[in-house]
Write a protein that binds this DNA or RNA. Sequence first.
RNA 1: CGGGGCGUGGCGCAGUCUGGUAGCGCACCUGCUUUGGGAGCAGGGGGUCGCAGGUUCGAAUCCUGCCGCCCCGACCA
Length: 447
Amino acid sequence: MRLSSFFMPTSRDDPAEAQIVSHRLMLRAGMIRQASAGIYSWLPLGYRVLRNVERIVREEQDRAGCQEMLMPTIQSADLWRESGRYEGYGKEMLRIEDRHGRDMLYGPTNEEQITEIFRHYIKSYRELPKLLYHIQWKFRDEVRPRFGVMRGREFLMKDSYSFDLDYEGARRSYNKMFVSYLRTFARLGLRAIPMEADTGPIGGDLSHEFIILAGTGESEVYCHRVLVEQDVLGTDVDYEGDLAPEVERWTSHYAATDEKFDEKEAAALGDDLVRARGIEVGHIFYFGTKYSRAMNATVRGPDDEEIVLEMGSYGIGVSRLVGAIIEASHDDDGIVWPDAVAPFRVGIVNLKPGDPGCDGACEDIYRALRGSGCETLMDDRALRAGAKFADMDLIGLPWQVIAGPRGIGNGRVELKRRDTGAREELSIESALSRLTAPADAGGPTAS
RNA sequence: CGGGGCGUGGCGCAGUCUGGUAGCGCACCUGCUUUGGGAGCAGGGGGUCGCAGGUUCGAAUCCUGCCGCCCCGACCA
């Protein structure tokens, strides 16, 4: 993409309404535009990141054996009357009436919807277990939306639902999602710590929040050092095998948010206690037969007995993650995208557009990178060097290729790594081979 | 939902207390000079001051109502 024609309205000044760093940077980088309180349009740069996050979430769901589908945003109130939540959910639910006077709602989540689908088609124990998910926009009419996409009213969520015959099966499904979440966040360049959680209005008696560590996180968290240090992606996971030991590896150590903070338990850790700020990016629940019983979702067992389905649900805040990643990865100059989600992998900075040498070299590099499938944004705008450097740092692409008259005479460019700031002067050829080296495609080093 | 604050060119703000027909910086357009970390000079365009009523000879400014947005707290992916 040529920056001269790319729609990327960056701004030099901080917007007045944005309080936290991710919100400020997303607005300054031209990633989002607020439509109304807690509702945002995603501009091209932001949408590219959102899609990357979504893609990784999807890949890890698929890998865990979860099947993707898509349910609607608008749901019938009748379904929610069956589960009892139509009255219970309160004002957070956006209620709509259609032209015939039917009560509808913009879905805040999809337990009822998926249960209705499931009960209609699945009649035999032979068809279990099943794990289904979708990635769809949700609406929760938060009293006070804030922090940009971190707590919007409209947000993109991945929600999965498991159906099993008994507790043991439900526990296996829960463990699959537990492990896949660890992998998902690690691939996004984040360190996520699972913490025991309240189940809230969704109900149930087994639940974990996944909290990523970020200096500017909303809540204070406490955990054992091991949880911050142990490896996530190093070993291959067999989702058909026994995942209990891996879950045990993450749940046997102390970890708590400030609400559940326990002075004594924390003190017992001594020097192993890590105190940090965190942001919730995922939440998993086992809730047994709460919805299946209310909505009569049953199958026939081997002896023709009626079995009420055991269910769980598993959510990842996809749009929230974009903000959360920035909270976890930025500096004074702007965003520092992890490679896996960066809107482009490389930014080319042509320091002197109009100079035949610079133009020619930049075009060559641009073409070569694109040819090798490397997503590249070329700043060919007629601006001063300082403005271009500032914009490039602001939008945080992992690599910058800086081409100016100084080096280009000798066929050399500067290669800059955004995260470390390391710069190196190289021949164009070596720069290209460095940049087109095999990229991480879900491999072991996602941080 | 309780408490507080703010709405003035695209962005950030001053002007409001004390009423007299709107200003600054950035951005934008034109020209010249500049050109490796947000240039300089000159010229130029753009605002019914959130909306609706009211007071007044006259309202961005005073009064009333409404709308929108932000912050703190309680709640949440």
